[in-house]
Amino acid sequence: MSDTTVTPTKTITVQGLLQSTGIGLALFLLIVFFSLSSEHFLTSGNISNILTQITINLILGVGMTFVILIGGIDLSVGSVLAFSSVVAGKVMTMTGLGDGTVIVFAVMAGLGTGMLCGLMNGAISAWWGLPSFIITLGMLNIARGGALHVAEARTIYSFPYAFEEFGSISFFGIPILFLLALLLVLLAWLILNFTVFGRMVYGIGNNEEAVRLAGHNVFRYKVGAFAICGTCAGLGALAYMARLNIASPIAGIAFELDAIAAVIIGGTSLAGGRGSVIGTLMGAFIIGVLANGLILMGLNDFMRQMITGLVIIVAVIVDYYRAKYANV
């Protein structure tokens, strides 16, 4: 399960192994360190907390992995999450329909909104060959404005009881929302390694022209990657709603940065073409464990922020050397 190169399962390379263990090792050391410095760290309650807290970032990170692998970036996921959440929230608080119907419609509306935003991101940047950085920056504003407009800048609450309950289910202390995110990771891993689509995602990230000349429709795959990223933002919105029982137009500010950080810490190259969702899973864990552990240690807010920033920089430096020695 743990390879971070483009190499498929059967052919785990030494480099791939080193890469994944590198990031896994960092996570392991972090866990050991926090376990020693706080008695509460390795309690089931706290583990459950960490899993809850990384869920949204993990979901966004999975989508972001696709976009970064094709050599793009999506800065809009935080805003798209807010937009999807208020659209879903509006549907979910509609009266006159049964709870079940409303929930199904709301889920579809949330995912649909996200996917639509992603489709727009991808179609515009791929069709005109524009940098996704700037297109998604535009979408960041559009989606945020849309969210505020739809919600009239108000928090939406009072969802059907069944939905609110669903968000708090857990199995042996493992929150159901995290399990769903894990399922998403698995699905993404299968797509990236065992489908033509996934192969093209890696191919485009490495050498778009070669893929085009091999007769593939680069446009379609690029749009696909962005659509997946947008859909993940919609899914993140539903997770947000299930966890907090509100939908907020100001939710998700700067979430895109955490998602990008998770992807990059996980060893995916910002230049595209190299990386995996397993890495993103690790990256999300590192960010979550760090945020949790530093609070348990009693570090103040500002120190905490500084250390988190430092870890991101160190992770990228490590990635630089890894890339340098891996691609000889």
Binding site: T52, R243, N292, I295
Partner: peptide, 18 residues
């Protein structure tokens, strides 16, 4: 000022100070 952040931060504070 943020709901999700408060949810996470407080959950962690609660673990540290049950």
């Amino acid at each position: 000022w943020e709901t999700e952040e408060a949810n996470s931060v407080f959950a962690n504070m609660l673990t540290a100070n049950p």
